[in-house]
């Protein structure tokens, strides 16, 4: 990660990011190491105060992308640059999906929330720290009187609030939320989402929000990125992408969302999942070609570059979907 961005408003710039993981070979004698590409050639920018949603199915690389942005995974190729005034360890914080497991079971809430300060501002006196703790616990809707309890004594939603308080204690610029509510029930989910929105408006936070729940992402984000097998297939302004998806995969994702309309659900045409012959297609082909209904010969020959569909939308497809004006 390097602090090189000088441009106005841009907090983070990701350029040609590729992340590979080694595959453990099951054979005793294997020739060379094999790698799995979790992310290939991902590029985008994050502007200050914006909420960026990242969507995609399981295994599409959402979590790898989030962790790379947080500096928890080293990129194999490419770079993540951040604005000059940003200190990564303090200004980029992370909220995890499994809220209870992400909290050390041997630490009290007070220790959990204040720990980043121990290391970053060791000179802060006890009174200031308690003040800060009280403020941050109340901000996320926790009772300051419960600061001596351990994480396992709280409910899932409260654990996620602890996780958020902990992330906010260093007053970060960017908050990366990796499926922060997918383990919570629907009513608690709404509370946590609203909390994140409130924090954003109070502190001018930039949010990176990962979820597989599309309606949630549509609600919370200004811009979205659609990932498919480690590649960005579409990115742009949320409403534009949702109303006029350019990539057939984006449309499929939107269409599989259940709707509270039994009539519609009864007539639903199932969307194809990964087809068998996907494996036989050459590595050069478009990643989506195996499932694509609109594929043509060009699609099996090379991977489409991202292209501008409008000033609000980019798509990586040779034949983007068209809509009547």
């Amino acid at each position: 990660m390097d602090n090189t961005i000088d441009a106005q408003n841009v907090l983070m710039r990701v350029q040609q990011l590729t992340v590979e993981f080694p595959i453990q070979s099951t054979k005793i004698f294997s020739l060379g190491k094999q790698n799995f590409q979790a992310l290939s050639n991902v590029s985008f920018e994050i502007r200050q105060g914006v909420t960026l949603g990242i969507v995609g199915e399981s295994g599409s690389g959402k979590t790898t992308l989030a962790r790379t942005l947080a500096g928890l995974i080293e990129p194999t190729v490419g770079s993540v640059s951040i604005a000059k005034n940003i200190t990564p360890t303090r200004d980029i914080q992370f909220v995890f999906q499994d809220s209870l497991a992400a909290l050390n079971p041997r630490m009290t809430v007070e220790q959990l929330i204040l720990e980043p300060l121990d290391y970053q501002l060791p000179k802060m006196d006890v009174q200031q720290r308690q003040q800060k703790l009280k403020q941050s616990m109340e901000q996320v809707g926790l009772d300051y009187a419960q600061r001596q309890r351990y994480a396992h004594e709280f409910s899932g939603g409260q654990c996620q609030r602890i996780g958020i308080a902990r992330a906010m204690i260093t007053e970060p610029e960017i908050l990366i939320c990796d499926e922060p509510v997918s383990a919570l029930d629907v009513s608690v989910r709404a509370q946590v989402i609203n909390l994140l929105k409130d924090l954003q408006s109070q502190h001018g936070l930039t949010l990176i929000f990962i979820a597989h729940d599309l309606s949630l992402v549509r609600f919370i984000s200004d811009e979205i990125i659609v990932l498919y097998r480690g590649r960005i297939v579409e990115q742009g302004h949320t409403e534009q992408v949702f109303n006029h998806p350019g990539h057939p995969y984006t449309r499929a994702l939107i269409e599989v969302e259940p709707r509270p309309d039994p009539e519609f659900e009864r007539q639903r045409v199932p969307v194809p999942i990964r087809s068998q012959n996907e494996l036989e297609i050459s590595e050069l082909a478009c990643v989506y070609v195996g499932r694509c209904k609109n594929r043509q010969s060009k699609c099996t020959q090379r991977q489409p570059e991202q292209r501008v569909l409008s000033d609000k939308q980019n798509v990586a497809c040779f034949y983007p979907l068209k809509y009547p004006k």
Binding site: T89, A101, N104, P105, E115, G163, R166
Partner: peptide, 9 residues
């Protein structure tokens, strides 16, 4: 929670 600790910087 060890990953969390890393994310705290």
């Amino acid at each position: 929670y060890i990953r969390t600790a890393y994310s705290k910087g």
